[in-house]
Design a protein around this nucleic acid. Structure first.
Length: 758
DNA sequence: GCTTGCATTGCAGGAGGTTT
DNA sequence: AAACCTCCTGCAATGCAAGC
């Protein structure tokens, strides 16, 4: 029967929006019935709805669908009990005849007993739980259909599952995706955990806001949307932007278009990002221009409004001719061209020559004017900002710290998970093995994190290397003969191998074995699946996590991008143990001596590695609080959260008092103080209010440790930076290195030497 | 009930491949 | 070579649960 609920949801009209609620569950089942004459609104036919829509538009052409809907949202309220008039019984609307009834079960039994859905109730004894559930389901479906009409026409009141004590806004309510009952957004998660229509307890670990998105999606006309796009929309956090995306048919069509076009490993994330960017532009246009929906953008007379909205959104400074968000301006330009193409195609299909002409003119204007008005300044802004960003190349010593830290963390996480299967141990092992696998595979982050269980099971080990991608290095081709690999198709369609060391394989097997017990969703196809949600862990996040905790002198420079650029081969070689090095490179190779030296360092690090630190909370002592207040008190009093730079400046000003704190810790502390202040002042942030974050362009982050200004001082694998790869004197992290220097420094030279061969 | 800090997610920017 | 475009990464905001 749940199936039928969903089917009925598929053809829901786009103008339906969720609402209301009361505090008494529908209890009229089986009681004496009071027939109502049916003063409430009747559901109209599709024909009448269409006619009305056309009529409205013709009467007031400036009134677009969206403005009309906003008006409706303002007027629609949720019915509440009227206590002045004595006990007020809740009316429900009949699914079959749309009449409001106090006693639905009696009405259904008497008037609609011929319906199969009603006959189902008769199979169960009177007053039985099963029979009551059939009635409840029919009542909810009837109310759902009624609510849909109320929201479309703006007439009548919504029927919530539990009536609110006072009239409430329709936008505070959504229907449950399972039972269709109308619940307050705030209560939806609680309801979902108990909803018996769901069959099993709902997993809301995806996040409450995402649950709301799924519910809201149910209220939209998404019958013609692909399952793929529905999934993408359902995973979006519900806010003002998501609402705009869901309401605009053209944005949705654009979503379908890019979902079909893109072949990215994390396609859903990409599609969501593009949809949100366009959604934000439409919102900005609604705020600052007469345009109300995306289709209005392609009316040539609105071109200057489009330019204006893009400029506002991308933070254009007309005096300096610069953007705070230049990439946003560029991306929107590309997207608008694509969307215009979609509108043009639609017009060709429907034979609308006027719209075809408009699109043609828009595209022509775009070609002629966009560069001058938008993209030239945006590109200049981006180039300037790039030039300002000084290169912060990681030190070789820090790369080694990262490797040893990951090794330590891996052994600990594997031991923990084998001894105690729990989501926390699973997450720890998944993230460290993912980080290690990425490091061993020259930073192929996207490819590694999207390895599926199926692909892992099909891993192979053979020296036959057909159709390898040109990006596969000679070293990797050699390693393919020694390690198992998962073959994936690169962008060129040729094979890119993901090499797996035996330790990675055993860890991945363990992860797959325990994933069910650790709460990984059965539909999640990834080996490195998160314990919540349908996605995999992100490689860059995992690398960053271990880079921050490895004790490196300059952890900020240990980013995936920079590691890939400067140290990919070193990371690949450092992962080889003595036996592997001997097998691959033969006896008495330089790698072997390097490995022996590494083991010494490894032992040292295990005894004082960051993981041995207890993970406890540090209460803010008086000295720390005073130090923060001294520099950031104005943020607390103004209730403004400081930026990273503010916190870093505070740390630099109070190095002793705040030696145990990070800039994030300082920021969290100030935020918590502000939260406390707001609570004390009785300020309550409306959780339903969407948060529109407008990030200002961050100035260049100050470095905790001064970096060499001369790039020649930093050893990297880039031939341009290190012209000679022989054992001449070079610098590691600012220290001189000569061939007989400390062993750990020497490794790097060996890496470079080997790198030269491969 | 409040504090603290980790995990997740949105978004801007950049890398690098492709097309013009 | 420049412009265009896709995809990925790094960072910050936010949510939320553990710890106090």
């Amino acid at each position: 029967m749940q199936e039928s609920c969903r089917e009925s949801g598929d053809d829901i009209d786009s103008d339906y929006i969720n609402d209301s609620l009361s505090d008494c569950q529908s209890e009229d089942i089986g009681d004496s019935e009071v027939y109502d004459s049916g003063s409430g609104p009747k559901r109209g036919t599709n024909e009448t709805r269409t006619t009305k829509k056309k009529k409205d538009k013709s009467q007031n052409p400036k009134m677009t669908c969206r403005t009309k809907k906003k008006k409706i949202l303002k007027t629609v309220v949720v019915s509440k009990p009227n206590k002045k008039e004595g006990p007020s019984y809740k009316k429900n609307y009949c699914l079959f005849c749309s009449k409001p009834m106090y006693k639905m079960s009696r009405h259904l039994s008497k008037v609609h007993s011929d319906k199969a859905e009603v006959a189902l109730a008769f199979q169960h004894p009177v007053n039985s739980k099963e029979r009551k559930r059939v009635w409840e389901k029919l009542i909810k479906e009837g109310n759902f259909a009624h609510n849909k009409d109320v929201l479309k026409t703006g007439k009548g009141e919504l029927i919530a599952q539990r009536r609110p004590r006072k009239l409430s806004k329709s936008t505070d309510f959504v229907p449950c995706v399972h039972c269709l009952g109308l619940y307050r957004k705030k209560s939806m998660c609680v309801h979902m955990k108990r909803c018996f229509s769901n069959g099993k307890r709902e997993d809301i670990s995806n996040g409450r806001k995402r649950v709301i998105s799924q519910c809201v999606l149910l209220t939209k006309s998404c019958g013609d949307l692909s399952e793929e796009l529905k999934n993408i929309l359902g995973e979006m956090v519900y806010d003002e932007v998501t609402e705009t995306v869901m309401e605009d048919r053209l944005i949705l069509q654009f979503g379908e278009h890019i979902a079909n076009e893109v072949r990215s490993t994390n396609k859903n994330e990409y599609v969501r990002q593009q949809l949100r960017a366009v959604g934000r532009l439409v919102l900005e246009a609604q705020r600052s221009t007469p345009m109300q929906n995306l289709e209005d953008f392609f009316d040539p007379s609105n071109f200057h409004h489009v330019v204006s909205a893009v400029k506002v959104l991308a933070g254009y400074d007309s005096e300096k001719k610069t953007y705070t968000l230049p990439s946003m301006a560029n991306k929107l330009g590309y997207n608008l061209k694509k969307i215009c193409g979609i509108v043009q195609q639609n017009a060709i299909k429907s034979g609308d020559t006027k719209v075809q002409r408009s699109c043609k003119t828009f595209l022509s204007l775009h070609d002629k004017k966009w560069r001058r008005l938008i993209s030239s300044h945006a590109l200049t802004s981006m180039k300037n900002s790039k030039r300002k960003n000084e290169k912060n190349v990681p030190f070789a010593e820090d790369v080694k710290c990262l490797y040893y830290h990951m090794e330590t963390a891996y052994h600990l996480a594997e031991k923990n998970l084998r001894e105690n299967v729990c989501p926390e141990s699973y997450a720890a092992l998944a993230s460290v093995v993912l980080a290690q696998t990425i490091a061993f595979n020259r930073g192929k982050s996207g490819e590694v994190s999207s390895i599926t269980v199926k692909a892992f099971m099909l891993r192979k080990r053979s020296e036959v290397l057909d159709d390898l991608d040109v990006s596969v290095s000679n070293l990797e081709r050699t390693l393919c003969g020694f390690f198992s690999r998962v073959d994936i198709r690169g962008s060129s369609g040729r094979i890119v191998p993901i090499l797996l060391k035996p330790s990675f394989e055993s860890a991945m097997e363990l992860l797959i074995k325990v994933r069910d017990k650790c709460g990984v969703h059965s539909d999640n196809p990834f080996v490195f699946a998160r314990t919540c949600g349908p996605t995999a862990y992100r490689g860059s996040d995992c690398i960053q996590k271990y880079a921050n905790g490895c004790g490196a002198k300059n952890p900020k420079a240990l980013t995936l991008m920079k590691l890939r650029k400067h140290f990919s081969t070193m990371l690949q070689l450092i992962h080889l143990d003595e036996n592997e090095a001997q097998q691959i490179f033969g006896p008495n190779n330089q790698i072997q001596s390097m490995v022996q030296n590494n083991l010494c360092v490894n032992t040292e690090m295990q005894s004082e590695g960051p993981d041995s630190r207890p993970k406890t909370k540090h209460i803010w002592n008086e000295t720390e609080v005073l130090a923060v207040e001294k520099h950031l008190m104005q943020f607390i009093t103004n209730q403004k959260i400081p930026q990273k730079d503010d916190c870093v400046r505070c740390l630099e000003a109070e190095p002793l008092a705040l030696k145990k704190r990070t800039w994030k810790g300082v920021k969290d502390y100030v935020r918590n103080r502000i939260t406390t202040l707001q609570r004390q002042n009785g300020f309550c942030k409306d959780p339903s209010k969407p948060s529109v974050r407008r990030r200002q362009k961050e100035p260049q982050q100050s470095s905790v440790r001064p970096q060499p200004t001369n790039r020649q001082e930093v050893i990297t694998e880039q031939p341009s930076v290190v012209p000679s790869l022989n054992f001449g004197p070079v610098h590691f992290g600012g220290t001189n290195f000569v061939p007989n220097a400390a062993p750990q420094d020497r490794h790097c030279s060996i890496f470079l030497h080997i790198n030269n061969h491969f």
